[in-house]
């Protein structure tokens, strides 16, 4: 079993005729994802390989039955693209784009509160339910289908490292989600943990956090009260200096808040199995699960 995306997910790729959009649309198709449409305004009627291209997301929903959008459009146009997808009524919006202005994302976030769409990202690798569908840019082959572990992370390649070590230990994944490294994003850790808790195919979770903000602390409180399945936690940035943005727009320790040490403490206090050495997280998970 999976959360948020499975073999019934029908993807429209916004920005499908750009370099990145084209490359990753092909990679998704190769993995087995149902990519039913693309959108590039002004290029409606064309095709990208066998995929029909439309001028609007609404058209792709009406004519190709898309229920999920995967967004690659550049930062200046990303807020527009997300809101268009939400307006067209897709269930899931996965935004890969890195570098969206924070004020744009704030407006998008409040706008989405009035819509049914779930946003994953931005600035994220996307979501994969191994063996069923891949809506994102992660390398498919490092994943192991069939569960039973759900993975949720703020990072991209760091998640690949964790997943790779799980797979090497023979531990499969139900769904892996990158929620993104920006300060304002769509789906939160808590929403993913809640869905994993409810998913009968998921027996445990790995949560990968990093410095900045308080999402991990909030998740820790949530886990303590609401999650019965075992959770392994990892926090990147124990050695990060305060006041500096560590690559991700959201990864910054400000005013002494958002440190890795504080997050590790909060997670431990709430019963999360915290692994402090990324090099051993696979072995660590094998012991816990």
């Amino acid at each position: 079993m999976t959360i948020f995306a499975d073999e019934n997910t029908r993807v429209v790729v916004q920005g499908i005729t750009g370099n990145e959009g084209k490359f990753h649309a092909r990679q998704c198709i190769e993995y087995g994802t149902k990519v039913v449409a693309g959108v590039t305004p002004g290029k409606g009627g064309q095709k990208m390989d066998e995929v029909p291209v439309f001028n609007s997301v609404a058209q792709s929903v009406n004519e190709a039955g898309a229920n999920c959008s995967l967004i690659f459009v550049p930062p200046p146009f990303a807020a527009d693209a997300i809101m268009e997808a939400a307006d067209a009524g897709v269930d899931l919006i996965v935004t890969i784009t890195e570098g969206i202005p924070v004020l744009d994302m704030m407006r998008v976030k409040h706008y989405l509160n009035t819509k049914k769409s779930r946003l994953i990202g931005p600035n994220c690798p996307g979501i994969i339910s191994p063996g069923r569908t891949k809506v994102g840019i992660m390398p498919g082959p490092i994943h192991k289908p069939g569960g039973p572990i759900g993975v949720v992370s703020r990072s991209g390649t760091l998640t690949y490292e964790v997943v790779y070590q799980l797979t090497r230990q023979g531990i499969g994944q139900s769904t892996c989600i990158g929620i993104g490294g920006d300060p304002v994003n769509g789906t939160s850790f808590i929403e993913c943990l809640e869905a994993f808790e409810a998913d009968p195919g998921t027996k445990g979770m790995v949560m990968v956090g990093e410095i900045g903000g308080s999402a991990e602390e909030q998740a820790a409180e949530y886990i303590k009260e609401n999650v019965s399945k075992p959770v392994v936690g990892f926090i990147a940035g124990m050695t990060a200096p305060p006041g500096r943005r560590m690559g991700h727009a959201g990864a910054i320790i400000s005013g002494g808040a958002g440190t890795a040490q504080g997050k590790v403490k909060a997670l431990k206090e709430c019963g999360v199995h915290v692994c402090e050495d990324l090099g051993r997280i696979g072995e660590f998970c094998a012991k816990v699960f």
């Binding site: 992370s153 703020r154 990072s155 991209g156 390649t157 760091l158 998640t159 690949y160 490292e161 490294g181 990968v208 990093e210 410095i211 990892f234 990147a236 940035g237 124990m238 050695t239 990060a240 560590m246 690559g247 991700h248 990864a251 890795a260 402090e276 050495d277 990324l278 090099g279």
Partner: peptide, 16 residues
Amino acid sequence: VNGAGLAMAVMDTIKL
């Protein structure tokens, strides 16, 4: 390192 989260984790690994 490629990727910000992994880069932070590698710094931590060096320290460990």
